[in-house]
């Protein structure tokens, strides 16, 4: 059994979701390699080489990979697939974009967003917005898997793998990168933060959403949101937590003015401690909250901010 993990990175640093995917790959029971597909991504390769249990880091470094578009990335992985029994990636926007393309090219039915490894062919994955957990056995000779990062304890950085450059592929050229607008933030990354403060429609306006950000800052946390808050334009889309947004599992999740629709719960119900602040005592969010406070956002959050900054 040999497994290959696609590294998640931005050419500068390795993202923690990779550590989780490596941890899942190790559970398959064989050797694990990592592939860094990027451009001038030396620092990423160095970091990947430290991941515990990794035998080898393959580096495909070429301008064609600068933005990690799905077409060349999948083509490269197809070339590597013959040497591996399993190909994995974290279930990030990149992993979700690239891996199914790879899977179809090698005629494999992908197993998406696994949350547990039973054995090298059997996995647990959530379906129906996490309202059911399916245990599935893959009958394909090769496995293509995406990994839900919050479900696996990240691999430590105690290793020293060999780094090996590999050849790039030609740019299929049908897809052209124009620009990337990254939400600049000094806050920790949403999916890796220890504390997440999330706001919903109940916040009422983007001006008032500053209360959520302030509370997050005092706690050194990240800012999340419900779909309704994103759709209303209170905050950029990449803050959406849920079935079709980001999956988070921080030590502390504070939901403010969020009703707790199943699609939202799907993204946060594995948080260690959940706090809900909502003026409606019947809001479903209270059914999953460890601590509920029935209160108006505009009274409770300023009071909380004052109390915590004191």
């Amino acid at each position: 059994m040999r497994a290959l993990v696609l590294a998640e990175h931005d050419n500068r640093s390795l993202k923690p979701a990779t550590h989780a995917a490596v941890a899942a790959a190790k559970q398959l029971g064989g050797e694990v390699d990592v592939v860094v597909i990027g451009h001038r991504a030396d620092a990423v390769a160095q970091q990947a080489a430290k991941l515990d249990g990794v035998a080898k880091v393959l580096v495909a470094d070429d301008p064609v990979f600068h933005e990690l578009l799905a077409e060349p990335a999948a083509d490269l992985l197809v070339g590597l697939a013959s040497g591996y029994d399993a190909l994995l990636a974290p279930a990030t926007a990149t992993g979700k974009n690239v891996m199914p393309r790879l899977a179809a090219l090698i005629d494999v039915q992908q197993v998406s967003e696994i949350v547990a490894v039973i054995d090298a062919e059997t996995f647990v994955r959530p379906i129906y917005a996490g309202n059911a957990l399916a245990t599935v056995k893959s009958t394909d000779a090769k496995k293509v898997i995406t990994v839900r990062a919050t479900a696996f304890a990240p691999a430590a950085e105690t290793g020293a793998a060999a780094i090996e450059p590999i050849a790039a592929v030609a740019d299929p050229g049908a897809s052209r990168f124009l620009e990337r607008r990254v939400t600049e933030s000094v806050r920790p990354e949403l999916t890796a933060a220890r504390v997440v403060v999330a706001g919903g429609r109940g916040i009422g306006s983007d001006g008032a959403f500053a209360l959520v950000s302030q509370l997050a800052d005092i706690l050194g946390g990240a800012v999340g949101a419900s779909r309704a808050a994103v759709d209303a334009g209170f905050i950029p889309n990449d803050a959406q937590v849920g079935q079709t947004g980001k999956i988070v599992a921080p030590d502390l999740y504070i939901a403010v003015g969020i009703s707790g629709a199943i699609q939202h719960l799907a993204g946060m119900k594995d948080s260690k401690v959940i706090v809900a602040i909502n003026k409606d005592s019947e809001a479903p969010i209270f059914q999953v909250a460890d601590y509920g406070l029935v209160a108006d956002v505009f009274e409770a959050v300023p009071a909380l901010i004052e109390r915590l900054s004191a």
């Binding site: 197993v111 957990l133 399916a134 056995k137 059914q287 909250a289 509920g292 409770a300």
Partner: peptide
Amino acid sequence: PRLVTLKVEDPPHRKAGVIVASVDELV
């Protein structure tokens, strides 16, 4: 199908906790 579903189960149930009376109690 390439995937065989062996079983489908309920996710672990999260129990509702407590309602606190004030911000002070919450903190």
